[in-house]
């Protein structure tokens, strides 16, 4: 039963890859409001066992921009985010169909190594989860497992530059050997962002990165996200409308496992086309 479903999934995937090859050139020219498309999801459906969590979601993520995914709890936005670096693979009963591409390449292609994918598409989680290691080793974790640096000096430099990009260097430069778990919540989250940056990803996925933080730490992280946009493509799941409006260029509104509306953030927040979107962002619903 299970074997059958995996095989049919593979067949489906190869078919879709072929389809994508045919379609992608036309696609790129058709819908390209700003910058090139970094990642795209086409007809993405996700099942947890029998329960379907996402229904034929289509979304394009543009390079060097922040895309925010908003919507009420349980609407599937985190599920979609986790599909983008195949974190759903960790969950046994989860099944993904449809086509998700990174720079035109199918990320669910069985020949693609998930490890490589996750190095290119980093992730920051809702709750800061530093490893119980030193601050230095936390940052050096990714570079070490991927062999990104050849000697100690290079690694030192990478750690420093990652911490600087995450705006944490000044606060921790004198205590790199102390445990990462001893930092404050906001610092821990920035440590996790620095850790994600250190593997030199193209895309950073953030799953409600500020929900466990106070307003001041949140403001710091939001500024950081805006800075990071220059070098990275960012997808962020958030429950805060203001946050989505402040940090993102594009916004997608999820509801009951479907995308109701997506587009430029300014348009979504000032002039939503769909009634449900309007109700949600004005706080009448959700």
């Amino acid at each position: 039963m299970e074997v059958q479903s995996i095989e049919s999934k593979k067949a489906e995937q190869t078919r879709q890859v072929e389809q994508a090859k045919k379609m992608s050139p036309a696609e790129e020219t058709a819908s390209q409001p700003q910058g090139p498309i970094k990642m795209s999801g086409k007809d993405v459906s996700v099942f947890y066992g029998e329960k379907q969590a996402l229904f034929d979601v289509n979304l394009e993520i543009l390079e060097n921009s922040v895309t925010s995914l908003i919507g009420p709890s349980g609407c599937g936005k985190s599920t979609f985010l986790r599909c983008l670096n195949r974190m759903n693979d960790v969950i046994d009963i989860c099944r993904v169909s449809g086509l998700i591409t990174l720079e035109g390449e199918d990320i669910y292609n069985p020949e693609l190594d998930v490890v490589e994918l996750r190095a290119r598409v980093g992730m920051v989680f809702q709750k800061p989860n530093p490893f119980p290691k030193s601050i230095y080793d936390n940052i050096a974790y990714g570079p070490r497992i991927h062999g990104l640096t050849t000697d100690r000096a290079e690694l030192d430099e990478l750690v420093e530059s990652s911490l600087k990009k995450a705006g944490l260097w000044e606060e921790v430069k004198d205590r790199l050997t102390e445990s990462g778990t001893g930092l404050s919540g906001g610092q821990q989250q920035r440590l996790c962002i620095a850790r994600a940056i250190a593997t030199r990803p193209d895309v950073i996925l953030m799953d409600e990165p500020c929900s466990a933080l106070d307003p001041i730490a949140t403001a710091t992280i939001e500024e950081l996200i805006d800075d990071l946009r220059k070098n990275y493509t960012i997808v962020i799941v958030t429950h805060s409308m203001q946050q989505a409006a402040r940090v993102s260029q594009r916004t997608a509104f999820f509801h009951l496992g479907k995308i109701i509306e997506e587009g430029e953030t300014s348009q979504i927040f000032t002039n939503p086309r769909n009634k449900k979107t309007q109700d949600y962002i004005t706080g009448r619903y959700g």
Partner: peptide, 15 residues
């Protein structure tokens, strides 16, 4: 050991 710790590691591309 919390699952979030493992997720953090997988999220960085660790096997």
């Amino acid at each position: 050991v919390p699952q979030s710790m493992r997720d953090g590691s997988y999220g960085l591309g660790a096997t």
